[in-house]
Design a protein around this nucleic acid. Structure first.
Lengths: 196, 196
DNA sequence: ATTTTTTTAGGACAATTGTTCTAAATTTGA
DNA sequence: TCAAATTTAGAACAATTGTCCTAAAAAAAT
């Protein structure tokens, strides 16, 4: 693996385990056994490392979204599977979500890109809900704006379940993903047309 | 106002507007026109300022909760009013919620206290839901664990709507409170026994 | 084989931060 | 009033951080 890739890998590990504020370029270099000078040859600004990691996350997100878009017959199972994939991705890049506000203050372009991503995801979710309504899986007696409100709830829960976990029960790894995926699925329960 | 109170007031303003990481004890002192030495006479560690501000928040929260507990006849209106009060309080101490994970890493005792507060709030919410179910306002056809899941969603949205706002639409002040109070109310919509 | 390019180590610097110390000023209490 | 306390300003220190610079080493190209 070349040095640049190795820096990103090591940075991700350190950011995830120590938090974005506790990790400096010197720490990353030390953990890799290279000099800080060398690290800054590959990334002149430390922020470029964070920026690049965010881009990796966004790219992997787009992959999941493209997969869902290619589905012809949307079902609750497929939807749920997409959710779990997303939650696993969020966990992989958890430092970003655990420090999202700080990062967006430090690197404003990340906020800008994230906002655009969010807007794309919004229309996609609304389309999926329409499909599920048409198939009689979701209720048909709710007003239009209930679905828009639902999308906002979804984003808040999806982006900050990790923070909630950190502040409360502190489940580790797969357990956290499993638990909060279930909470996430629970959001949709009262929207089902037929209570199972 | 004595110096100690003034420090807390100024710190809250600065933390809210610049973020907890960008503000140092020197900044607070400078804004007040006192020396850093003086500030540290009143608060030996800067973290004590944050800790004290958290305690103020928790105390005001308890006040709202006590008010709700004293209600004999729970209704959706009263519940909603309590929510708006909470959202206004959260906005008042917004730096805490915008940097909750960082703060809890810096000052672990805050995390511990917050967790305890959360657990108290959980039982309280479940009791309110029981009352609303008994009165025929909330649905009766949902399984037990649906309500526990709902409480988790509620906490995530209540604690991180500000972060979501910061990352996306960036509403200011009262507008943010108004908008997200409405999103919050929307959570309960599909739980109502009768769609209005 | 030798020149050119890329990569690396290590030192250096300026800025910042939290905190402490000392001495002066101010307030309080007897 | 005047001694004791509290409060304040300002200097000082050690640690850390991001970034840059220089020169050597390694790799690639010719």
């Amino acid at each position: 693996m070349d040095t640049k890739t190795m820096i990103l890998k090591t940075a991700l590990e350190l950011y995830n385990s120590q938090g974005v504020n506790a990790v400096t370029s010197r720490h990353i270099a030390a953990k890799m056994g290279i000099s800080a000078g060398n690290l800054h040859y590959h990334f002149r600004k430390t922020d470029e490392i964070i920026r690049k990691l965010y881009e990796q996350l966004a790219a992997e997100f787009d992959l999941i979204m493209a997969g869902l878009e290619s589905i012809e017959e949307m079902s609750m199972e497929i939807f749920r599977e997409g959710s779990v994939q997303s939650f696993e991705l969020i966990y992989k890049y958890r430092f970003i979500f655990l420090h999202f506000v700080e990062i967006s203050l430090r690197i404003p372009s990340i906020r800008k890109d994230y906002y655009a991503l969010t807007q794309r995801r919004t229309t996609q979710f609304l389309a999926v809900f329409e499909q599920l309504k048409a198939k009689g899986i979701f209720r048909n007696d709710l007003p239009e704006n209930a679905w828009e409100t639902l999308v906002q709830q979804i984003f808040i829960v999806a982006d900050f379940w990790l923070s909630n976990n950190e502040l409360t029960i502190r489940l580790k790894g797969g357990n956290a993903v499993k638990h909060y995926s279930r909470v996430f699925s629970g959001i949709f329960y009262p929207y089902l047309a037929v209570v199972p």
